[in-house]
């Protein structure tokens, strides 16, 4: 079982990201579950979403408290949310930033991966410059850093399910897959 937690802000598409990842893993014959943090939704507010993936039936209906993978879609959340709370000792963190992984201090030794998903989203005209929709871009980075699913599967899901600008979203996913930085990535 892999448990994934997304941290974003209302409008960035964290909930959709958790769903697209689930769809991709399901396409590769896993059982999946995707759900938002049970709260009251507001644009701009911190949003948490979750994905579970397992080759066996996913029966656990509790929230995710000890994730294997954490995704941070907005670096400003680091001041507001303890994003590494409960993260497994070998758990990976994928962050949306122009910085290199070694320039980011999370106060933990977990492997970090960074990608400038905001710039990629802007380049492909996803959202606005002030509020880019970074979900499809960051997913490309997640897949490269974790090997959770094949990039082709994810891109298919993005192309099929993106509510608008399907090709642009697919391109953003592919570009982030190429550009993500991390110690063990070439």
């Amino acid at each position: 079982m892999k448990e994934i937690r997304f941290h974003g802000r209302g409008g960035q598409g964290a909930v959709t990201a958790s769903e697209f990842l689930a769809r991709a893993a399901f396409a590769e014959e896993n059982d999946v579950q995707s759900f938002p943090m049970y709260g009251v939704e507001r644009r701009g507010a911190p949003v948490t979403a979750f994905t579970r993936v397992d080759s066996k039936a996913v029966r656990n209906k509790a929230q995710i408290h000890e994730p294997d993978i954490v995704i941070v879609m907005d670096m400003a959340l680091l001041d507001a949310v303890d994003v590494t709370d409960g993260l497994k000792p070998d758990g990976k963190v994928i962050l949306n930033t122009e910085k290199a992984p070694e320039e980011v201090d999370l106060g933990v030794d977990n492997p970090k991966y960074t990608v400038d998903a905001s710039s990629i989203a802007v380049e492909h005209r996803l959202g606005s410059e002030v509020a880019p929709i970074v979900n499809t871009a960051i997913l490309g980075a997640v897949v490269r850093a974790t090997g959770l699913v094949k990039i082709e599967t994810l891109v298919d899901v993005v192309r099929k399910n993106a509510p608008a600008k399907k090709e642009e979203n697919a391109k953003a996913t592919e570009q982030a897959y190429e550009e993500v930085r991390g110690e063990d990535l070439e």
Partner: peptide, 11 residues
């Protein structure tokens, strides 16, 4: 159950 099923997506 609210959210746990109602807002959770599964196959």
């Amino acid at each position: 159950d609210a959210f746990i099923l109602s807002h959770t997506k599964e196959p």
